[in-house]
Design a protein around this nucleic acid. Structure first.
Lengths: 121, 121
DNA sequence: CGGTATCCCCCAAGATACTG
DNA sequence: CAGTATCTTGGGGGATACCG
């Protein structure tokens, strides 16, 4: 059963969240979105560059996540050329740039954890 | 097909991650984990308190996520009493406390987004 | 009180093949 | 080059009932 509620709910573009932490995690959460955003932090990148820099992601997943990030207004997509081979550049929007401090915090803590508990291979 | 790899892989407790951002998101990502951690940030809480403060979560999901956070060493679980009604207190471990700056960054950005694009209900 | 047990559904995500 | 199309699978998460 659902546990009792009390309100500090927030609604953004039709979706209802129990708190703003939940909202933030919906926008940049999941397995790949933060990773993509992080790779776009310092410079715009092409689709294939992103793929090469993100070991383990499949073409399909990369494509879907990019589309979602674009829908949520975090990144923009720009196409160069008409006929294949074309070139597509992804970059952070201003809204996307607003989460750079957060991306840095994620990386910072991730690095800390890796330093203490992980091994680089 | 899988896109080509290049290494700055990191391994933590048997799991392989393409980068430390990915590692961090595995630890605190998903729909509820960051929310739980955030609610434990300032004080230890009982199971039922967490449930009341997190509208929308089900008992099962709360229980499963707490267990995962405990397994990953982010929170600790302490039981008071033998016979029902018992009392169970969850609190951040030192490791869990290490991500408080990150939790604040998540909340901060979430608040920013909500202020710009959301409405509180 | 603080959970499990059970059942179910949906969708994130992988593998692979193909296309404008 | 930058993706879709198609199929499949795992598991996250919901609903409800029950238990120590």
């Amino acid at each position: 059963m659902r546990i009792e509620c009390q309100s500090d709910l927030v609604k953004v573009s039709g979706k209802l969240y129990p708190c703003t932490v939940s909202l933030a995690m919906d926008l940049i959460g999941g397995k790949w979105k933060a990773v993509i955003l992080y790779h776009l932090k310092d410079s715009a990148k092409r689709y294939s560059e992103l793929g090469k820099e993100m070991p383990g992601v499949t073409e399909r997943t990369l494509s879907l996540q990019l589309k979602q990030l674009e829908e949520d207004g975090l990144i923009s997509r720009q196409v160069y050329g008409e006929k294949p081979p074309i070139k597509v550049i992804y970059r952070l929007t201003d809204f996307g740039k607003s989460c750079i401090p957060l991306l840095d915090a994620i990386l910072g803590w991730g690095n800390q954890v890796a330093a203490q508990k992980g091994e680089f291979v």
